[in-house]
Amino acid sequence: MIKFDKVTKKFGSITALSAVSFEIPKNSFVFIVGPSGAGKSTIVHLLLREYLPTSGKIKVSKQDLAKLTKKELVALRRQIGVVFQDFKLLADRTVFENVALPLKFVKNDAEQIGKEVRQVLKLVGLTERAALFPAQLAGGELQRACLARAIVNCPEIVIADEPTGNLDPQTAVQIVDLLKKVNEMGSTVIIATHNAQIVNQFNQRVIALAQGELISDQPESQYPLTK
């Protein structure tokens, strides 16, 4: 499903990723862990093709990301749901409207969109908050709204960049629980995090990075720094 082949990414003289290789099969649940500056977010940005690798190849569903046309890139991004660390919800739209966005890109049937959005809001527990604007939500609610937007169109891949970053431990577990549910529904889930407690609690595959290098890739593992 996802293949990183000796991927290096440099920003000027700074090497964010250095010859990183790994594969993530379909329907996996993977943590990418490491301290700040390890290269976790760079992987997320590369997967979304916000920028291209300096060297190496990234393939998603057998498509080389470097060779995508504009149309193919749009199609790829519609296959990937993203939970951003800073939520990136549109401030001037309600929770409902934010969550409905990915559906509006591909559907015209307002009734159907409404139905699907309500289902997802129910799943993440935000039914009561649907009419509120992002500024009126608490941190955990913002994260759940962001998650709802990421999964509303049933994407093949869900990427969560530090989804528990600003949350209390209990809410953080709730969010990862939701992501596990999404994984069980058929999506490949990748979580970039430095939250050891969460990683250890879920006991899934862990790809560990440090200073841009891959230091371990273990199935059903614990956070490496706590071992």
Binding site: V74, R77, G81, K88, L90, L101, P102, F105
Partner: peptide
Amino acid sequence: RAEIKVLHLIGAARGY
């Protein structure tokens, strides 16, 4: 700008 970037990342076509 920020909103446009988000729209791009979540799969909005240029036309949208």
